[in-house]
């Protein structure tokens, strides 16, 4: 791809990533929020592909598709609004959050822009995927295995925590609707 085309795609992806990212928390439906998050992630994956990490970007996009679907399903499973299409606002401490978000952005962007980054681009960008494969199953095999074992432990742990008949009793007990008053416990 030529430079202008890359710049154009980068601008488009950045715009989608940021606008969709903001919309995640500005929309009134949770399923919509999940779709916006997916759009933001897909755009970020596009930027990663543009940066030359083709495999990583595509895997990120692939992974997020499944994750978003699980998210949308979990949301409507436990939230008080089954189809996720009715408007709702569920926010606390919005001002503090905005300030914290802006401060985080300014701090990181400031560091990024003021710091001196050495310029050592890859000599052969096309080989990035093959290099990663050799590294994964060569020198970094231990990292790869550790990630695998971590995921296995996560699976076991997640199932143990969420299992229908565990230390927290029977699953059927949880099938009651949540109350519409959010602060029952607090007021008691």
């Amino acid at each position: 791809m030529t430079g202008a085309l890359i710049d154009l795609s980068f601008a488009a992806f950045s715009l989608v990533a940021i606008v969709a990212g903001v919309r995640v928390f500005r929309t009134d439906s949770m399923v919509r929020a999940a779709f916006y998050l997916l759009a933001s992630f897909a755009a970020a994956g596009g930027i990663i592909v543009l940066l030359g990490a083709e495999f990583l970007g595509m895997v990120l996009i692939l992974m997020m598709a499944g994750e978003m679907l699980v998210m949308a399903i979990v949301m409507v499973m436990y939230m008080m609004n089954p189809a996720g299409l009715n408007p709702m606002v569920m926010v606390h401490q919005p001002r503090t959050a905005v300030v914290a978000g802006v401060v985080a952005f300014l701090a990181i962007a400031g560091v990024g822009l003021s710091g001196e980054v050495p310029s050592r681009p890859a000599p052969n960008p096309a080989a990035a995927t093959a290099d990663l494969g050799r590294e994964l199953l060569g020198n970094s095999m231990l990292v790869f295995q550790t990630a695998g074992v971590t995921l296995l432990a996560t699976m076991v742990g997640a199932i143990a925590v969420a299992a229908p008949r565990g230390r927290y009793g029977d699953a059927a007990e949880g099938s009651e609707e949540p109350g519409l008053q959010p602060d029952e416990e607090a007021s008691a």
């Binding site: 940021i18 928390f25 959050a97």
Partner: peptide
């Protein structure tokens, strides 16, 4: 630098969301 700014923006939006949302999933 541009990518760093975009990354910082995403991080900032995430901080805002994690602090402001009541729902666990959000």
């Amino acid at each position: 630098e541009a990518v760093l700014v975009v990354g910082a923006a995403l991080f900032g939006i995430g901080v805002f969301g994690a602090l402001s949302q009541q729902s666990f999933v959000m």
